[in-house]
């Protein structure tokens, strides 16, 4: 029953359409957080400066988010933690995206043994949770090195881009449109610019947004299980863990990092391309 007119009815609701309003709000939210991450460390006092006399000081005009159990400024620590999360996550996502996309397109374009090798490698990677790779790699460096965290997260995520890009590129490259481009002798550049890239872009936007969420959450989770970054570094997961014992006497300690974490992930989730539902 697929008369065009009836089709319109049947298709309604197969996937909620996220309004562009949501995306604009997400961009605004992320810009705000980025401002905190960029300007905060420049303008605010040293986040490691302890002042035990101001132990668990409540929020005030002078110190909007109060002070923690070492008397450190929560706002300053939060700004540093946000910057760390954003920069490290962006680096991981960029690395995984470039690696996975190039490998995926190569796999679909050339086929043959290149495809076979890349697929075998990805098959093994896909069954290993990101967290496990990160755990293993961060065991490499005691004391929670940033380098290990970056390597682990990027290594764990490239396979996702590879699989999606390979599958999608295979469809695009096998389509009549690309066959027609071949008959018209339009060349590889035309295929990449007009066929592959326009098709992959919304997918990659969505994957990268989700990748940011995954990276940020993985970092904070590792801080929580005490194998990621180590205190006294300001990191969202660590801040949540450290503040937990004080949740009833100093709730601002917990609420601030939780709110930032939640805001970061929600904004990135809303940034996904509404057409794509992975």
């Amino acid at each position: 029953m697929t008369t065009p007119l009836l089709e319109a009815g049947a298709g309604v609701g197969v996937g909620t359409r996220r309004r562009p309003l949501g995306r604009r709000a997400a961009v605004a939210g992320l810009l705000g957080l980025a401002a905190l991450a960029i300007l905060g460390p420049l303008l605010l006092p040293d986040p490691t400066a302890q002042d035990l006399g101001r132990y668990l000081e409540a929020p005030s005009l002078d110190e909007p988010l109060g002070r923690d159990d070492y008397g450190r400024s929560v706002l300053a620590r939060l700004a540093h933690a946000t910057r760390l999360s954003l920069v490290l996550a962006a680096l991981c996502v960029a690395t995984a995206l470039v690696l996975g996309t190039v490998a995926g397109i190569a796999s679909a374009w050339f086929g043959g043994w290149i495809d076979a090798v890349l697929r075998a490698v990805s098959e093994a990677f896909v069954a290993i949770p990101a967290l496990l790779v990160v755990l293993l790699v961060s065991a490499l460096a005691s004391g929670g090195s940033l380098w290990a965290l970056y390597l682990g997260l990027a290594l764990a995520q490239w396979v996702e881009y590879f699989r999606v890009v390979r599958a999608r590129s295979g469809l695009v490259l096998g389509s009549p449109a690309v066959e027609a481009a071949g008959l018209l002798r339009l060349g590889a550049l035309h295929v990449v610019r007009r066929h592959l890239w326009p098709d992959l872009r919304p997918l990659l936007t969505t994957l990268a947004s989700l990748g940011m969420v995954t990276s940020i959450l993985a970092m904070s989770t590792l801080g929580f299980v005490k194998v990621g970054l180590q205190p006294p570094r300001a990191e969202l997961g660590l801040m949540i863990t450290e503040s937990f014992p004080f949740y009833d006497v100093a709730p601002w300690l917990s609420i601030a990092p939780i709110a930032v974490l939640f805001l970061l992930t929600i904004c990135f989730l809303a940034l996904r391309d509404p057409e794509v539902r992975p």
Binding site: P176, A177, A180, A181, R194, P198, D199
Partner: peptide, 8 residues
């Protein structure tokens, strides 16, 4: 419809 690049 399948013989043209759909998104340009």
């Amino acid at each position: 419809a399948l013989s043209f690049p759909p998104r340009v």
